[in-house]
Amino acid sequence: MELLPRIPLAEWIDAFVDWLKNAEFFFDGLTSFIKFFIDGIETILGAFPAWALILVIVAIAFWFGGRKIGLAVFVLLGLLLIDNLGYWNDMIITLSIVLSASIISIIIGIPLGIWMAKSTIVESIVKPILDFMQTMPAFVYLIPAVAFFGIGEEPGVIASVIFAMPPTIRFTNLGIRQVPTEMIEAAESFGSTGTQKLFKVQLPTAKATIMAGVNQTIMLALSMVVIASMIGASGLGTAVYYAVGRNDAGGGFEAGLAIVILAIILDRITQSVSKKERS
């Protein structure tokens, strides 16, 4: 074994990353775009006093979550608890990053999924890439993110997008491919154009499946944002991170509880939207 020199894979990758840095203007542009996104959402969410935002979220949960009183009460109590424990601002930051990452994932993921559904060639190329992306441990994405974007919230969003986008792509592809043949034929037999077929038949039929993918994407984005506190994305994750560093069990539990509450709220709202579409 000693005869064979070690393959310098790490060096190669480093060289590649160095080379990529030539495209600095591109990464800078991307960074400012993402910053604009996060700032926008943060400004909107920050414009409300806590109590008003709580009411808005409760109302959204009630209307879009299938009008369940139980859910509304849970959301109300959960958010009041977060505010009471003093994690409100951290929660807003985390929520902004999660929403930014999710929205970008959806904006890229749905068209990509549609393209995949329309072309078997694209599907056969994208599918293995998605598999690969999902089997990598989450924090591995932090490394290239830091390499290209430095530290802060923006690389956190980038890493989250990469980590969280696959379900949206997959489910969009799946949902469109699952539309019954006879419905497609009916659409075609009446002389629909490709676009009409997509928007009038395929997407409405696939909506529930796509929403299930979006739900997963949001959950993955949240988990990634917490991890991304390691590279300076502030918010609830940072609170946990500090607590771990200071061996502060109580503080860690509080911040962790806030994350769980946020996760449940996001999950229930998107899941009920998906279920409502399905029935």
């Binding site: 006879e182 419905m183 009916a186 037999s189 009038k200 038949v201």
Partner: peptide, 13 residues
């Protein structure tokens, strides 16, 4: 030409 389908081919939504 219009077609009526064996399994209806209606749009459920």
């Amino acid at each position: 030409v219009s077609m009526v389908f064996q399994n209806f081919g209606l749009f459920p939504f």
